[in-house]
Design a protein around this nucleic acid. Structure first.
Lengths: 216, 216
DNA sequence: TTGTATATTCAACATATGTTGAATATATTG
DNA sequence: CAATATATTCAACATATGTTGAATATACAA
């Protein structure tokens, strides 16, 4: 009698690694900690995924394509909805954020861990250039193109800097450090993604308009 | 004949640790790497600063008071300049960011490393609650009070969320990951703090106004 | 069934890690 | 100068680390 199927153990390893990498970063986690959390032998992680750095890549890439595809889909749907005319800034930003919000609110807690790990990667000078270009940067380019269309008179640098600010606001939200809970005396909660995203859209849109000029 | 004074070696250790912690995080750095970069014996770091975690605290705290004091000073001067009436949003945000910009542009490259390390701490769920409350959160509270005065009709949650977004935009700027360089095809540079801060002020101010309602 | 590929465990390795204590040098003070 | 405190080096420790190879178990195909 077997307890779990093969793929279950392999995914338990990914789940455990995901949770630990999200909180402690790559170097703050040992293979033994991962194995312990996944309740498997240490050697099994190496058997399935190779070196530690390969496991890190595997965890990062597991949900990357899924999320990126969902993003493209939503952005496309948003484009079509704005029949004929260009989308509003709010529509573009919402399309960019919606898949993340849905992932955060998923019943699978792994998605929250994954996005916290993405935030870690985004903020890390070391991992950023290694992991972000492969999957995510392509969709970011599409997103920026949509912004250019909505802000035809904007200088390209302005758009890039504004995207940079949005990216930072997003990363800190995904990271879930709990700081806003502390600073607000409990009035705001890191886990309240509805609150975070509902305000982020008008905040960012207004910033874009101010810096990049009125949209057409 | 002695090569360097005692305090110089001790500060070389702090400088080396600062640079390495900023880039690789706490767990990504070994005492031996720090010692090597500082060109001192490994044991010397322990002799001066105790355990590794204490060295981390020492690096973080070395410039914290200095920066925090500069921040308070600028915020106070900004308050007085707005004689009688309350400050504008832009003035408040500028006062918040100016000391950081000055530090970034300092001739001492240690300041850039330090601020990148602060960004790492801000984005880390583990270190955030350990290190941020001691020094920085007090000034943040003053800053938020100024915002409340400038946005008398705003709900407190809205202000906190907007501050959270600004905080994220700031953190990613301090982190200097180089991502904006890549995404913009070289049009924007992570090291161009003038560009980053000049746009961040109107961006954030517009976001606050949109989310928190018009200022008085 | 038997044979074979896959999955999992166990034990061990070489190396890297933070930290310490004793020894030595340098500075400071009387 | 001598005496004392501080700073620095050296060597070593116990432990933790990623990784591997052999042994064993399980799944699967013939």
């Amino acid at each position: 009698m077997k307890e779990k199927s093969t793929s279950e153990k392999s995914e338990r390893i990914l789940d455990a690694a995901e949770e630990l990498f999200a909180r402690h970063g790559y170097d703050g986690v040992t293979m033994r900690q991962i194995a312990a959390k996944a309740e498997v032998d240490v050697a099994l992680a190496s058997y399935h995924f190779g070196k530690k750095v390969d496991l890190f890549h595997a965890v990062f890439n597991r949900r990357a394509e899924l999320l990126s595809a969902s993003r493209q889909e939503v952005l496309l749907a948003s484009k079509e909805q704005a029949s004929g005319g260009t989308q509003t800034l709010e529509q573009i930003i919402e399309a960019f954020l919606l898949p993340l919000k849905l992932a955060q609110e998923s019943r699978d807690p792994g998605w929250r861990n994954y996005l916290a790990m993405v935030a870690y990667v985004m903020a890390s000078p070391v991992w950023n250039e290694v992991l972000m270009p492969n999957v995510y940067d392509k969709r970011v380019t599409e997103f920026i193109d949509a912004l250019k269309a909505a802000l035809p008179h904007a200088k390209e640098e302005d758009i890039h800097w504004c995207y940079h600010y949005m990216s930072g606001a997003l990363a800190l939200t995904l990271a879930q450090t709990g700081r806003i809970d502390r600073l607000s005396g409990g009035k705001c909660k890191s886990s309240d993604f509805d609150a975070a995203y509902n305000r982020m859209i008008p905040f960012v849109a207004a910033g874009f308009r101010k810096v990049c000029g009125l949209d057409s």
